[in-house]
């Protein structure tokens, strides 16, 4: 009688404390039936990667509004790969200009959501692309 749940970590890397989006999303993921681990603000990529592994999450959702995503997002993806946890999907959101999309995808970020993305569209993406592992 297996009862698989999707586990997702919502994390705020860097020094930016604008957590409105992160907190709204955490609630939204809960309401979608996921188990959500929220890290709070001001996390280093190292803290996020270590936590994601300890929590065995399927997805890490990063939120950054400070412009430091170009460093922080790839850093998380790279650390997960180094710790043999490259199977954890990393997605991101925040103030991210379009020209940064491709380099971020290349670094291992699987999806990006910018202001105006609906909650439904984000949940749908997760539902479609992530299956809880056994």
């Amino acid at each position: 009688m297996s009862d698989k749940k999707l586990r997702i970590m919502v994390a705020k890397p860097g020094l930016d404390g604008h957590d409105r989006g992160a907190r709204v999303l955490a609630r939204c993921f809960r309401d979608a039936g996921f188990e959500v681990i929220y890290t709070g603000c001001h996390q280093t990529p190292e803290q996020i990667a270590a936590s994601a592994i300890q929590e065995d999450v399927d997805v890490v959702g990063l939120s950054c509004l400070s412009g430091a995503h170009r460093y922080l997002f790839p850093a998380v993806a790279k650390l997960l790969q180094e710790k043999q946890a490259g199977d954890i999907t990393v997605i991101g959101g925040g103030i991210i200009p379009e020209q940064d999309f491709q380099p971020l995808y290349d670094s291992g970020i699987k999806a990006l959501f910018t202001p105006g993305a609906t909650l439904d569209s984000i949940v749908d993406w997760v539902r479609t692309n992530i299956k809880p592992r056994a």
């Binding site: 809960r30 309401d31 039936g33 959500v36 681990i37 929220y38 890290t39 709070g40 996390q43 936590s51």
Partner: peptide, 14 residues
Amino acid sequence: FTGGAILGDRIRMQ
């Protein structure tokens, strides 16, 4: 209601 959960205790131990 939703079967989901926010697991927030960890924040204090980060």
